[in-house]
Design a protein around this nucleic acid. Sequence first.
DNA 1: AGCACAATCTAATTTTTATTACATTTTTAT
DNA 2: ATAAAAATGTAATAAAAATTAGATTGTGCT
Lengths: 290, 290
Amino acid sequence: MSNSRSIAEELRVLFETLTPTERKVGRVLLANYPVAGLETIAQLALRADVSGPTVLRLISKLGFDSYTAFQTALRDELEIRLQSPLVRHDPAQLQGDSDFLVSYAARITQLMQETVAHLPRVEFDGVVDLLGERKNRIWLLGGRLTDPLAAYLCHHLKVVRADVVHLRGVPSSWADSLVDMGKHDVLVIFDIRRYWDGALHIAEMAAQRKVSVLLFTDQWLSPVSRVARFTLAAHTAGPSGWDTNTPLMLLVDAVIAALNTRQWAAISDRLQEVEAMRARLGEGSHRADE
Amino acid sequence: MSNSRSIAEELRVLFETLTPTERKVGRVLLANYPVAGLETIAQLALRADVSGPTVLRLISKLGFDSYTAFQTALRDELEIRLQSPLVRHDPAQLQGDSDFLVSYAARITQLMQETVAHLPRVEFDGVVDLLGERKNRIWLLGGRLTDPLAAYLCHHLKVVRADVVHLRGVPSSWADSLVDMGKHDVLVIFDIRRYWDGALHIAEMAAQRKVSVLLFTDQWLSPVSRVARFTLAAHTAGPSGWDTNTPLMLLVDAVIAALNTRQWAAISDRLQEVEAMRARLGEGSHRADE
DNA sequence: AGCACAATCTAATTTTTATTACATTTTTAT
DNA sequence: ATAAAAATGTAATAAAAATTAGATTGTGCT
């Protein structure tokens, strides 16, 4: 399978060279693509009213040396197709810059919907609970591209509560913070594709100390998810398109909004204090937008 | 399986009753739905970093009395879904008003659409042109909450081109940079409500020196827009409720994507170089997600 | 601290599935 | 019409998968 043709295409090309019974299988496969190919040989053979070995011979002619290999290829194809139907169906959309913005927004909207649709609600609620709990200390940590998101979340959390720290600089300097952590600490990690070993190490060490690890990641799930207490996964890209972190930001924003909504009574006092102080301090000399 | 809920929905409902390890499986399943479930138990278990029996227990909790039955159900579902590609995720999912996340996402989606609808194409194209022009030097500058966005844009621009600087620290230190600026400089400013006087001052000085000022702001337009050459305004809030910067991020992402698409030929070489260098440098010790 | 219970894994077992070898049938050419 | 070749199926076998039973680990509670 060196070429990039899809299996269905390959099958269509090969079709005329097939024997009559093999064609039966081919037809069933194409008519119910790719689901039929994900069944067992026996099931597929039954559907095509053909024997097992015939199916196997067809598969072999397609260039696979085992039925398992064939199924794996089918699944891989399917995975790509399901992940971004929009990009898949008309890639031309993103080319014409006349309406680039519109189509781009449409795509991101779709990614956002997928993100929301796939996210278990307990995960979301769990994150909000942990971040809202005053007894906990919060530590944030991001990767190269996601550190801005960590910073963004940090700013918002600081408005709402105390004990929030954004870990910056070199990983070695975090050891100091790490040794003090315990079960009342929450480590928020942002880790998206091109996963970063450092994040995993830190998460593992933290988890060992009963620290609650919260992970913001993409749909392919950073390895950190194995030790994370809660994982929020955003759909960030299709295969051929450009990555976007907007859906991830949606999650961050939603968490912030949920925190605010849920704990409005508790935080409103604090908000006013912060406001007052900021007014007295800042006045022009420092950055102050909201 | 008498009811008509999809397996994914069923899983989401059940999620909170699951044990921690079972949830791992659930997450993998949902994140890669439904392909992950079409693999063998062993493969799925491996993906979720869990043992086979755990997978099986989850499946049993879902109401299936064999893994095979589960897979058959998945395939049936998939077959139906693939037949009507337009009915993507069951719309019922998006209607559940009780779900905070869903309604929040719906609202942001609307804000994003408004943003796109109101944004003049020339503005967008102008920004992309200016940022893509190699002769220009780019300077970025954000406010308290928007600085992460500036940082994010900065990272992406640096991948694509040279002469990109994110201005940090205290405003007074920027004077050095400012005196050198001229008509081949581009100053990108992020300024949203609670507009910041400092930003206006800097923008005015820059504009006087023929610097092109690009402004990312909210729908009420920062005063900087008066001196800005191009302004991209995002709708960041509804009448009641909490602000969100997600639509602003959409704009940033769209600009990046447009730049990449438009100049693919020109930048692909550069990309490879950057990749090679990063590979030689980073290797574990530094932050490295993408 | 220690007991009870839940969660999870390991490893053995059973069942299913893919694969192979070979027999039978069908087709084709003379 | 018949022999040779191709196509296809049957049945045995090997491989892999699912399933189960029991051991082990971890957790909460008194």
